[in-house]
Nucleic acid binder design. Structure first.
Length: 421
DNA sequence: CTATAACTCTCAA
DNA sequence: CTAACGTTGAGAGTTATAG
């Protein structure tokens, strides 16, 4: 197997820069939902010491001092730019696995020798020219090694100019390179495993590669054993061209203001259900289980912290927003307590089944309002999400998340384009 | 005892 | 003036429970 990992550089920031060139060469961060913390940073922002996940209020002084531009996340924009990028990348290989919003694996089995790095350079140039997004390319014999190669390309290690090909690297060179990478830089090694491996004296990627896969399988987990094999060029992870069927649909948000009352929570939960059910119908699925929760902020560690949660099966699987809403609101009323300051609520749809291949019920058929749901989805697709909604979702929605620094929907909304100066 | 369900922990982007 | 810290999804491993 020969595989490339293509990954957008500081993807969200790069998307913003495409439409606002004044952001070039400046420190820029994109904030998480609710303008909470930094989830993407330009190189300039990283150089100022802004760590991934830094809460916005904690870096405000630094931002003032250095003119850091902070933007609310604009997922409509990033999703659309991602679609364009993935379509371009699909043209470079017969097989593509879209792994996340900003990266994909490409199967390059037909190519060999210098063709691989050449292909990587063409990919980079093409994506940059066609949609303005800078990407880095890592090429290797397994997905885990390709991730590491990409990491090296991003860090400009081994003389890579945005493209790093491990397949032509002599074994000694590769070892020297991996010896400089901490074990936590390996795909699948998180903070906990890094600590456990460190206890065993394995602190670098090179050390992990040289370790005994069988022993680590037993001592730690089968995952680690697989990673060791992958680091040695033995592919354990296949390229997954078709995504496995979804197992759960989650919609959750932090509130823009502190919430104490049941009415606000009800509006929020009804809105999240509407969104989740919309996703459910788009995938032609139905939910057999419903999970609802509401909680206060875990960051304030006083005794008043509360997390209410309830998970219940549906009598019959459903994709009906109204059925799911009624049930979710019933569940919410059961977990609601007066007193706590709620900071977040969420819903999850579980036990998803194919709506087409449904199990017949012995019980009387539940109403599923299929025609109504279809009309609802049509109206909202044409006129925008939330145009047609249940009264339970509320009108003013004061609890909505903060997005004070949101940029226009440059690629998805004509009327917002008119605002661009 | 085994098989499965339920739950927790970890990881990723 | 003060307080303010994301979301979604998957998989593995452990514990509880049923038969």
């Amino acid at each position: 197997m020969t595989v490339a990992l293509v990954d957008g550089n500081n993807f969200f920031v790069s998307c913003e820069r495409v439409f606002n060139p004044r952001l070039e060469n400046r420190p820029v961060v994109v904030l998480s939902n609710n303008d909470g913390c930094a989830i993407a940073r330009s190189e300039e922002a990283k150089a100022l010491g802004v760590a991934m996940g830094t809460p916005w209020f904690q870096m405000r002084d630094l931002a003032r001092q250095h003119g850091i531009v902070a933007l609310s996340s604009n997922y409509a924009l990033y999703g659309d730019m991602s679609d364009r990028m993935m379509a371009i990348l699909a043209g470079f290989a017969p097989e593509q696995e879209v792994y996340s919003i900003d990266e994909c694996f490409l199967g390059l089995d037909g190519l060999a020798g210098s063709e691989l790095a050449d292909c990587g350079r063409r990919i980079r140039a093409c994506v940059r020219q066609w949609i303005g997004i800078p990407v880095c390319v890592g090429i290797a014999a397994t997905k885990t090694l390709a991730k590491l190669a990409n990491h090296c390309a991003k860090k400009c290690l081994a003389g890579s100019a945005g493209v790093c090909d491990f397949t032509r690297l002599p074994a000694v060179e590769l070892d020297r390179l991996l010896a400089r990478l901490p074990v936590g830089a390996v795909w699948g090694i998180g903070p906990r495993l890094a600590r456990q491996l460190g206890d065993l004296g394995l602190t670098t990627a090179a050390a992990l590669r040289a370790a005994d896969a069988t022993v680590l399988s037993r001592r730690l987990s089968v995952q680690v054993g697989r990673i060791v094999c992958e680091l040695n060029g033995i592919a354990c992870l296949a390229l997954e061209e078709v995504a496995a069927p979804q197992q759960q649909i989650i919609v959750s948000r932090s509130f823009g203001i502190p919430v104490q009352g049941l009415p606000e929570l009800e509006e929020a939960v009804a809105s999240y259900i509407a969104r989740a059910a919309e996703k459910l119908r788009r995938e032609n699925l139905r939910a057999g289980m419903l999970h609802v929760y509401a909680r206060s902020s875990p960051h304030r560690q006083d005794a008043t912290h509360y997390h209410g949660s309830l998970m219940l099966p549906l009598a019959t699987p459903s994709a009906d927003t109204l059925v799911l809403t009624r049930m979710a609101l019933d569940m919410l009323r059961r977990i609601y307590r007066r007193g706590p300051v709620y900071q977040k609520a969420g819903v999850a749809l579980l036990e998803l089944s194919d709506a087409a291949a449904s199990q017949a019920s012995l019980l009387p058929a539940a109403p599923d309002n299929a025609a109504l749901m279809q009309a609802l989805d049509h109206v909202n697709a044409r006129w925008g999400r939330g145009t047609l909604r249940s009264a339970a979702e509320g009108v003013r929605q004061p609890w909505q998340m903060k997005r004070a620094r949101l940029t226009p929907g440059y690629t998805t909304a004509w009327d917002e384009l008119l605002c661009v100066s």
